[in-house]
Design a protein around this nucleic acid. Structure first.
Lengths: 249, 249
DNA sequence: GTCGGTTGTCTATAATACTAGACAAATAAT
DNA sequence: ATTATTTGTCTAGTATTATAGACAACCGAC
């Protein structure tokens, strides 16, 4: 029942590191300590050097800290819960959990709608779109990167407004959309890509949560299509039945 | 921009295989063909043999099919969307997408509530619980495995009812709960464990979507806590704002 | 049939990952 | 101080992974 396999293309030490990291995330080792290298070697049925390599990798990631003669300790970690509901907003959703939650605009460009986006936003095919790429951070730690599409005609001043306001919600307000609601969210998951690892400071082998969502104005007209990629080891998505203090019926 | 790295503990051929699999899932190669081995070797800046090993792995998984002299073709794949909302039910949610959707009971036992479960289900600490483990399948393909907890006193006949009825919804109905609603769902993601790979027939390196959910009776009393693990390459979770024909306000 | 392009197979070599054992160095308890 | 426990370092051998090149086998188009 060691759970690790040979000849799979994934080095044993990495499988072991992933297993230990998952075990920590799963709430094992809540005593703050890892078993000894010898015990882990026996459990995984590998050489102690292989376990040492796994632990060294986790230490480089900052997941554990090891001291000669004493053992290996688990570094306490925090996980943020990101609520998804009718009133989903990045900064507000993390309020209370972190000191600072910000989204940074890391790029924007104009492009034409493909078939899917046009249908989602109820625009004509090849309609001009505004594409915004953002990075969501909490306390300086990157949590998500996202691509957002808007009708370029209706929201021509959006990028400038974002530059002034620093958030999509406020930028939309400056463009005359004082309120909007989340109408759909689709969630999947996949291994992190190279771009994910770079933008979100993830380790190889990390996992991202993928969401595709659509926001609409109070009249139900779609105004924003987004694809977000969350660092799965730092974020839990929470689907609430209804937000408190919502404006909606 | 090849996206693959050396010395990460993941063999190059596996990184390439994962990258190609992700690209397919991302909608690239929708023409049904993969670039030639030589082109891929150039793109990833590796030897052709390394690319061949990656393609061979994907062929073993059934993701691609390769014919000498012709090239490598992408095997069309299906992805199921699993709706999450107030009225989340496994079989009904997949209706229309697949021919048959069933949950199988793969184990059940009695255990006592830990602190977290007791709080979730509003039971006293160490209250007796019924633990059911199920496997969700669509058209014979495993999609999810889940653990469910119920108040053992209130639902003493649940396991027998499940044996007769073949679904949790109907088993609950037989125990006097004719209706229930989803009150919370938390979603995260992680690499598949060995048990995941076994139960869900996943390849090493696969990813699972994790949900923790609570169902309550119409009076709002929690009756069921569940933890599900979905095969992320076969399932998309969809968060709908509200289900049609719901009983709730 | 012939040809260009593609995948299949073989040999050989180098780099990386894993195992094995021994002993040093640090920690914590006695 | 002594001791048991635990991590750190070193050497060496084996197995897996990656590279390199050459050529065969096969497909589709002409």
């Amino acid at each position: 029942m060691s759970g690790i396999e040979r000849r799979t293309g994934v080095a044993l030490w990495r499988q072991i590191a992933d297993d230990i990291r998952a075990a920590i995330g799963n709430g094992d080792h809540d005593d703050g300590r890892l078993p000894t290298e010898a015990a882990l070697a026996a459990r995984f049925d590998v050489n102690r050097h292989t376990v040492r390599q796994a632990i060294a990798a986790l230490a480089r990631e900052g997941v554990v800290e090891t001291v000669q003669g004493r053992g290996t300790a688990v570094v306490p970690r925090r996980r943020v819960t990101y609520p998804i509901g009718a009133r989903t907003r990045f900064s507000a959703g993390l309020g209370g959990q972190v000191a600072t939650a910000v989204t940074r605009l890391i790029g924007s460009l104009r492009e034409t709608a493909n078939e899917e986006l046009a249908a989602t936003l109820r625009l004509s095919p090849n309609a001009p779109l505004l594409r915004l790429e953002t990075l969501g951070e909490a306390d300086g730690v990157p949590l998500s990167r996202a691509v957002h599409w808007f009708d370029a005609e209706r929201f021509s001043g959006l990028v400038e407004a974002y530059g002034r306001e620093g958030s999509i919600t406020r930028a939309l307000a400056a463009c005359g959309v004082s309120d909007y609601v989340r109408v759909s969210t689709e969630i999947s998951a996949a291994p992190a890509t190279g771009a994910d690892r770079e933008d979100l400071a993830l380790q190889p082998g990390a996992v991202v949560l993928l969401t595709r969502s659509v926001n609409a104005d109070p009249q139900g007209r779609p105004i924003q299509a987004s694809r977000s990629r969350f660092a799965a080891d730092r974020v839990t998505l929470s689907v609430a039945p209804d937000e408190p203090a919502t404006d909606l019926p």
